[in-house]
C-alpha cells in the first residue's frame, strides 16, 4: 500500500496498527523538522504537566480559588521572580505547544492548500502577538505606578 503523506506529516496509520490504537501521532521517520516538532510536543508536554497542574491547583483549587485574585494579589505574587519565571514558562511553552497542536489538527481538516496556509498563519500571528504581549507584561509589570 502506498504511503500517503500530508505536507511532510507522518503517514496516517492504518486501523489496527499500534500507532493508531494508542491514540496519538506516530513518531515521524528520520530527523527532519516534523521529528523535532514531535519531540518538542513530548518534552514541553512533560514540563507543562508540572507547571500547569501546579498553576491550576494554586490559582483555582487551593487557597480559595480565583475569588481572591485581583490586582493586589498579582502585585504581591509577581514580587517574586520565581512566579514571574513560572508564569512566563507556561506562557511560552503552552503557546508554542498549542499552536503546533492546532497546526497538526489543521493538516487533518483544512484540505485546500491556500486555506490551510491562511488558517495556519492566522494562528501563528495570533500566537506571536499574544506571546509578545504576555512577555512584555510579565517582565515590565511594576505595581508601584498605581500606589502613588
Amino acid at each position: 500500500m502506498a504511503v500517503r503523506t500530508r505536507d511532510g506529516a507522518a503517514p496516517p496509520a492504518r486501523s489496527g496498527e499500534p500507532a493508531r490504537l494508542r491514540g496519538a501521532r506516530p513518531r515521524p521517520p528520520g530527523r527532519g523538522a516534523e521529528f523535532w516538532w514531535w519531540a518538542f510536543m513530548r518534552v514541553s508536554g512533560l514540563v507543562l504537566v508540572v507547571l500547569v497542574i501546579g498553576h491550576v491547583l494554586i490559582m483555582h483549587v487551593f487557597g480559595g480559588g480565583i475569588d481572591r485574585v485581583n490586582f493586589q494579589f498579582v502585585a504581591v505574587r509577581w514580587q517574586n521572580p520565581f512566579w514571574r519565571t513560572w508564569d512566563w514558562l507556561i506562557l511560552s511553552l503552552a503557546t508554542v505547544h498549542g499552536i503546533n497542536g492546532l497546526r497538526v489538527i489543521i493538516l487533518d481538516y483544512v484540505r485546500r492548500p491556500g486555506a490551510r496556509i491562511a488558517v495556519t498563519w492566522l494562528f501563528y500571528i495570533v500566537g506571536i502577538l499574544l506571546f509578545a504581549l504576555g512577555s512584555i507584561v510579565v517582565f515590565t509589570f511594576d505595581p508601584s505606578k498605581w500606589h502613588a
Binding site: 485581583n70 493586589q72 498549542g98 497542536g101 492546532l102 506571546f131
Partner: peptide
C-alpha cells in the same frame, strides 16, 4: 481538550496582560 485549552489561553493572556494597565482595568 487541546483546542479548548489553547482558545482559553488566548483569552487568558489578554486578561492577565491587563495588570499592565492598572487595578481598574484588571479587577
Amino acid at each position: 481538550t487541546g483546542v479548548a485549552i489553547i482558545l482559553f489561553l488566548f483569552a487568558h493572556i489578554i486578561d492577565t496582560a491587563l495588570v499592565g494597565w492598572g487595578p481598574n482595568a484588571y479587577n
